[in-house]
Computed example of a mutant assay.
Amino acid sequence: MSDNTSGTTAAIEEGAKKSSILWLTLDRPRLAWHAWHDGAVYLVSGGEEQELPGLDALDRVRVTLRSKDNGARLVEFEAAVAPVDQAAAADVVAVLAKERLNARDSEHLPERWARDSQVWRLTPER
């Protein structure tokens, strides 16, 4: 891996860990909350969660991470989009549930997500 790629990977991880929101380029730039886990961005859409129209039709998406302090763009990158089998990824669901603020039913998030929502993995392309 080149130093430039290493630097970009480190910037992605640092930016994703420091801020719980990011921007996705879909039909227009869309703000989304997320969690960083195991080298990827995870997010939930559908049901009572954030609407991310068109994400389900994409193989890749453009992601922008901004500074939590001043909103400046930290890094932009392409990410591979993949649905997550929630039954097989309890660790991911637990990380997301911990990061989900202001949920009306926080103790029942995994059940509601399994029924009504989709969890997504966005893997930065290196």
Rank of each mutant, 00 (worst) to 15 (best):
P110E: 10
L101N: 05
N102H: 14
A57P: 00
W33V: 05
M1R: 07
K68A: 15
E111C: 00
R60C: 05
R100H: 15
Q50T: 10
L109N: 08
V61D: 04
A94I: 08
R112Y: 09
D3G: 05
N102S: 14
R121I: 06
E111F: 01
A90G: 01
D59R: 12
R73E: 11
A57K: 12
A35D: 02
R115T: 10
A80C: 02
G71Q: 11
S106M: 02
P53N: 13
V93P: 01
Q50A: 14
P83Y: 01
V63P: 05
S19Y: 13
R62Q: 14
E111D: 14
D105A: 12
K17P: 01
Y42K: 02
A82P: 02
E78Y: 02
G47F: 03
L74Q: 15
L122N: 08
G46A: 04
A32T: 10
T5F: 03
S6V: 08
A114V: 00
A80G: 06
T8Y: 02
L43N: 02
T8I: 11
A87S: 15
M1T: 08
E13P: 02
H108W: 05
D27L: 10
A89K: 06
R62N: 11
T9N: 12
S106C: 00
R73S: 12
A35L: 01
P29Y: 03
L74H: 07
W36R: 07
S6H: 09
R115N: 08
E13S: 14
N70F: 08
R62Y: 00
L43K: 01
H108C: 00
L24T: 09
R60Y: 11
V95F: 00
R60H: 13
D85R: 14
H34Q: 15
A11Y: 03
V81A: 09
S106Q: 11
D69W: 01
E76C: 09
D91T: 11
A89F: 00
R73I: 13
D59T: 06
S117R: 00
Q118S: 06
V75Q: 13
K98F: 02
V41D: 03
G39L: 09
A10R: 14
V93N: 02
G54N: 10
E99P: 00
T123L: 15
A35F: 00
N4A: 11
R126V: 12
R112W: 03
T8E: 12
E51V: 04
R30I: 06
H108T: 07
R30H: 09
S45Q: 10
Y42F: 15
E13N: 07
A89V: 01
P124I: 05
S19W: 08
A103T: 04
T123I: 04
V44L: 06
E48C: 02
T123C: 02
A88I: 02
G15C: 10
Q86R: 07
L101F: 04
G46W: 01
Q50D: 05
Q86S: 09
D69N: 09
P110W: 05
E125I: 14
R73D: 12
E125D: 09
I12R: 12
A72V: 11
N4P: 00
A103Q: 03
D3V: 06
V119E: 06
H37P: 00
R126N: 07
R121D: 07
